[in-house]
Design a protein around this nucleic acid. Structure first.
Lengths: 120, 120
DNA sequence: CACCTGTATCGATAGACGTCAACATAGACA
DNA sequence: TGTCTATGTTGACGTCTATCGATACAGGTG
């Protein structure tokens, strides 16, 4: 089950998933895929976890490095899973610890959705 | 009630609310404010409405121009209110119609949160 | 004034979501 | 093998939220 590909926009990988938000109205399907990513960042705890990983040395961090966000350990695990399912983080086990790292491609795509829209 | 200021990051207006997501871990308060904006775009219907406004001529649109997203009129109104409360849209009544327009400052700030993080 | 159209609000409801305690799993080490 | 630590999963519970029909409000027109 954890092997299932749920990354919403890594399949095309060439296109940033969707056009900038001001180019044309998004289709229902485009909106569905894109909303998953924004929703993933739409929770304060997830935003802190993501920021903690992104700002950590090398753009990756062990769960033990970032789990001090005021919620229980299962909740941290749950939120990291959500971020992973949204394609924003990837994880890798190295010995005892699990390391999460940011997916820069997806991050850049999201950013361009907004900055290109803001510029025009 | 509609005059109440709920825009989460228009008060500073100088700073993009928070540092890029990879500069340092967000504080709880920063995450709280920022998550509101991402959450607003984390719904497919809202994303379509926002994209419809942003891509409309002049960056603004009447509700009647964009309300064909497959949900009832009260639901459209509800989502537009959410986007407005998040600071992403502003509205103005002109005669019979209400026009919504994008708030480019906020949009750019969100974009930089992501693009600066992706670049580094 | 009455009536029509466009938009917002109210109240209810079903489903999604965040959270936790309890338990399960994976790897390290003795 | 057994035990300890780190992380993930399960199940339950309360709250939030998306949605709708009904209704209210605003502005134009007659």
């Amino acid at each position: 089950m954890s092997n299932v590909k749920v990354l919403p926009l890594l399949e095309p990988a060439l296109e940033p998933c969707c056009p900038p938000l001001n180019e044309r109205p998004l289709t229902a399907e485009e909106a569905e895929r894109t909303a998953v990513m924004f929703k993933a960042l739409g929770d304060p705890v997830r935003l802190r976890l993501f920021s903690a990983v992104a700002s950590h040395e090398g753009g990756e961090a062990c769960v033990c490095d970032i789990s001090d966000v005021g919620v229980s350990q299962p909740t941290v695990s749950h939120h990291l899973k959500k971020l992973k399912e949204a394609g924003l983080l990837s994880s890798e086990r190295r010995g005892t610890w699990v390391y999460y790292r940011v997916e820069p491609t997806v991050l850049a795509a999201m950013g361009q959705l907004l900055t290109k829209a803001a510029a025009a």
